[in-house]
Computed example of a mutant assay.
Amino acid sequence: MVASREWLFKRNCSISPQQLVQVYGLLCAVSLAISVFFIIRGTWIILGFSILEQAAVAYAFIYYARHASDREQLVLHDGFLIVEVVQAEKVRQVRLMRRQMAIRFMVHTRLIGLESAGICVEVGRFLTEKKRRAFMHELRQELRMTSTPGN
């Protein structure tokens, strides 16, 4: 049995979805207060712009919240590299054979391509280019170490 090695790459989110809801509520309250001020002065059109603004911010916040838990998890175990990619709550999991695996830097996407037995998955979305290259080197070393007899 080969020892496991695991990597986890995820977004660096500074605000949780729950905190985002609180911020959105505060923004809506401030915008509504400003709208009421102008409604009292007879300018109703400001309310329309306020609603439009709140809808645009809501769309952006919903997009952010859907992608807040995006991640890539790679586990090297028993001759396989198991790659799980979560994007907008959609999970894709592939199992790549270590001995047949090719690791490439994908020029068109600037991501790391892992390919085995006709299955290709790209990882490294949450890494800088420098860290992607360092990870590629680390993964290649790990694959060489686990492929030597006696390990």
Rank of each mutant, 00 (worst) to 15 (best):
H77W: 06
R99G: 08
R66S: 00
G124T: 09
V85I: 13
F61V: 05
H67S: 15
V85N: 11
F61I: 09
Y59D: 07
V75Q: 00
L143K: 13
V83E: 05
Q19D: 09
N151Y: 09
S50W: 00
S147L: 10
S116Y: 00
M97W: 02
L27T: 01
V121G: 01
G113Y: 03
S35H: 08
R110F: 09
R41T: 03
I34G: 03
L47Y: 07
L111P: 02
Q73T: 12
I119C: 14
M101G: 08
M106H: 12
G113S: 07
Q93A: 14
L26G: 13
R104D: 15
C120M: 11
Q87F: 01
N151I: 07
C13V: 14
M97L: 09
G48Y: 02
P149S: 13
L8T: 06
C120Y: 04
E122G: 00
E72M: 05
L143D: 13
G25R: 02
K131R: 15
L127Q: 01
L127R: 03
T43F: 09
Q73Y: 07
L139A: 07
L32W: 15
M1I: 14
E53I: 02
W44T: 05
L114R: 00
S16T: 15
V83N: 08
L139P: 06
M145K: 14
I62R: 13
T146R: 09
R144P: 00
C28N: 05
S116D: 03
Q22C: 14
I40A: 02
I40N: 02
G118L: 05
M106Q: 07
I51T: 05
R95K: 10
Q19M: 12
L111T: 02
V83F: 07
I15W: 04
G118P: 06
K90D: 05
S69A: 01
V121I: 14
A88W: 06
A29N: 06
M97N: 11
A55W: 11
L32D: 13
A102G: 06
S14Q: 13
S69N: 02
L96P: 00
G113L: 03
N12P: 05
P17R: 04
V91Y: 04
C28S: 12
M136L: 11
I51E: 03
M101E: 10
G79T: 03
M106C: 05
L26V: 15
T148R: 15
Q141M: 14
L139H: 06
G150C: 05
M136N: 12
L74P: 09
H137W: 07
E115Q: 04
L47G: 03
Q141V: 11
F80S: 11
C28T: 12
R140H: 10
V83R: 07
H108A: 12
E129H: 09
R11H: 13
V23E: 14
S116F: 04
R144L: 12
G25T: 01
A3G: 13
A68Y: 07
N12E: 14
